[in-house]
């Protein structure tokens, strides 16, 4: 469990939008460029790492109650995306690091994937 502030340091990331919400606590991470995978295998409250920058990333995050997204590989989201994220109270970060290294750094510092917590992604018993 760590705050987005700590994650920004670990990923050498910068804030794209949502600078007022950096005290948000993150325990779980998920990473994919395939949004269907995110929809299928992630959990609410996770940090989403992706190299994809289109409005569907925000929509996908909205559907599963993901509140923080970090774009990897030096990708820059455009205004449409930041506006959508603002409306949904999301935090957007970006880093120059590639996906592999971003995941590795976070995992090393204790961010885990949903499978490691042993709970069903939809919270069903």
């Amino acid at each position: 469990m760590m705050t987005l502030k700590e994650i920004i340091v670990i990923l050498k990331a910068e804030v794209v939008t949502g600078a007022d919400k950096l005290n948000m606590k993150i325990q779980i991470g998920c990473a994919a460029d395939l949004m269907s995978d995110i929809l299928a295998f992630s959990s609410p409250g996770a940090l989403l790492l992706t190299g994809l920058t289109n409005p569907q990333v925000i929509r996908t995050a909205e559907m599963i109650d993901i509140k923080a997204i970090c774009f990897v590989r030096a990708k820059k989201p455009d205004n449409t995306i930041t506006t959508m994220a603002d409306d949904l109270n999301m935090v957007l970060l970006r880093t120059d690091l590639p996906m592999f290294e971003s995941c590795g750094r976070l995992y090393k510092e204790g961010i885990v994937s949903i499978d490691n917590l042993g709970i069903d992604k939809n919270g069903r018993e």
């Binding site: 395939l34 949004m35 269907s36 995978d37 929809l39 299928a40 289109n54 569907q56 996908t60 939809n122």
Partner: peptide, 16 residues
């Protein structure tokens, strides 16, 4: 390229 169409859609609907 938009992050969809990997053959997960219907399965996702069924699972949810």
């Amino acid at each position: 390229e938009l992050g969809f169409g990997a053959g997960m859609g219907l399965m996702n609907i069924k699972n949810c």
